[in-house]
Design a binder for these strands. Sequence first.
DNA 1: CCTAGATTTCAATGATGTCTGAAACTGGCG
DNA 2: CGCCAGTTTCAGACATCATTGAAATCTAGG
Lengths: 190, 190
Amino acid sequence: MMSETGEVPPIPEPRLPLTDAERLFIERWALMAASWGVPRSMAEVHALLFVTGEALTADDLMTELGISRGNASMTIRTLEEWGIVHREQRANERREYFRAEQDTLALFSTVIRIRKGREVDPLLSLVTECRARVEAGGARSAQFTRKLDDIQLFVTTVDALASRHLEPGGDGMRSLLGAFSLLDTPGGER
Amino acid sequence: MMSETGEVPPIPEPRLPLTDAERLFIERWALMAASWGVPRSMAEVHALLFVTGEALTADDLMTELGISRGNASMTIRTLEEWGIVHREQRANERREYFRAEQDTLALFSTVIRIRKGREVDPLLSLVTECRARVEAGGARSAQFTRKLDDIQLFVTTVDALASRHLEPGGDGMRSLLGAFSLLDTPGGER
DNA sequence: CCTAGATTTCAATGATGTCTGAAACTGGCG
DNA sequence: CGCCAGTTTCAGACATCATTGAAATCTAGG
């Protein structure tokens, strides 16, 4: 595929000389991913794509990060499902290239949306099911109901916020951060 | 307080007949804890203490949840460090009782504060260290710097919010939820 | 100072989830 | 039609982390 012309093919892929800063970023990003419940190698793949902004092949990922082909494949699929990595096809090229979402705030927005779905939304069905089973008679039922009310208050507020500012396409994240700064300036308490 | 008179001491501990709703709550809470990075048995212990609101002994926890003494001990220590469970000493009683924070929103506040420390704050040192290493010359250095700027914007905003509304003692959580509802009503975009 | 009830610690075990590597699959090209 | 570059799948190896249980430690009372 690169022997097409037969002349001066000395530099096959000048895409990937990483700087020190970039390497550090990848390492730390992967380390943090642990406390996020994200597999290390998945975080590495994403960090590499994110930080370079380049379109890379599966082999680039494998050699640069020292992971297996199978791992790279499955990881990329997941990243794609999350919507933070996209496939690209090059003319006259069989193999696929992968590129990461470059808008940092959109990335955070996506991550938060996914985690809200995993970690906050289930609380709502918890509340619903528990409500269906509290018998008014129980000694602790009043306290319990109050707790359920508070949980629901929390979840619905987060929900409203998310559906307003965290929708897939938009740049709602930036407006959300803006709104927060406004909240901060008045200096209401203490 | 009920064996005071010395007569009819037939029921040693009437603290713990759990209702169906309470049992369900504990089960689900523990299940969700998995996606939170919290050990299952730790979530169970906390859920039991939280949902009943009673002061329970280590043995209560062990028999009700079917966990070992060692596990109960270490788990309680951690919950104590997080500030959502407290020890109590009863007069004329050697063994300790444990009781959970009962204010639901204060609980969420604590959880969010802890997770921010684990998951958001490290981003700041990542940014700082990376900045120290970007050489202005690199081909991608401009893009990289922009990303670092955005990450820092995100972290500092979250930080400001947290230090204003999520401080240990206060009921800042309620005011935060209130502020969010305000944000929602105007209906700025789309 | 000793004893007994209660708690903490920690090495060994068990469970859970990630990663690898080889085999199966896909689709384009000679 | 069959080969080849590339991609996906999956069973088993491996690593990580929670949990146990017994031994060490602690503390109040005798």
